[in-house]
Design a protein around this nucleic acid. Sequence first.
DNA 1: CTTTCATGCAACTATTTGGTTGCGTTAAAT
DNA 2: ATTTAACGCAACCAAATAGTTGCATGAAAG
Lengths: 108, 108
Amino acid sequence: MPSSEPAHLFAALGDPTRLGLVTRLSDGSERSIVQLGEGLPMSRQAVAKHLDVLHGAGLLHRRKSGREVHYALRRDAIEAARGWLDQVNAQWDGTLARLKAMVEEGDG
Amino acid sequence: MPSSEPAHLFAALGDPTRLGLVTRLSDGSERSIVQLGEGLPMSRQAVAKHLDVLHGAGLLHRRKSGREVHYALRRDAIEAARGWLDQVNAQWDGTLARLKAMVEEGDG
DNA sequence: CTTTCATGCAACTATTTGGTTGCGTTAAAT
DNA sequence: ATTTAACGCAACCAAATAGTTGCATGAAAG
């Protein structure tokens, strides 16, 4: 049950290994656990755990195919995270705009 | 010494309390530790630790004024995080564009 | 059918994290 | 000068995290 809450999303991204996995998947492809673990200095289970964290945060799509499990990046989750950051920026801009408007109104 | 590494940045944002603090600061204002802690169900020190994490990740600017310490959001850090997410999207788009180009070239 | 390979599950460990409390320091207010 | 308010530092604790290993299972390949 993916959560999609911003904090959950950012927490999942807050680890170099997981960020690397997301980067690897950023071409939109699907990969198996072993494929994603290739070259990483840790056990398969460690990689599986990381993928589970990413999946739990709603960042990955999971598909079983035979004896393999394939993960793919969920673009909407990335957009959700981006959206939160945009909102922070918007709030900032909005406040400054209102401030500017007030100053100008005061001037006129 | 703020790090500004993406994983460090996301990790700092990966906690509801800290996300709330960032939201509070998203109007661009400066606030003291006690001010930022008002209404939060935890001790001042807990809040101070959270602010230190955010500052350590490069997300907050810190200014001492008399006996108070004021924190403000660093917009460039927010943009850095956003930039990383944008890059993931761009990679995705790029791959799809290349794929489409290949298909079209194959068709022509 | 037997073997191999990708995975899941569970136990265990060390480190990090999010929180606490107590105390000391310094700046502001009375 | 004394008190109060905002902070920093350090010790401590429980829970979560990132990793390990060993073993069981189910699908593919021989």
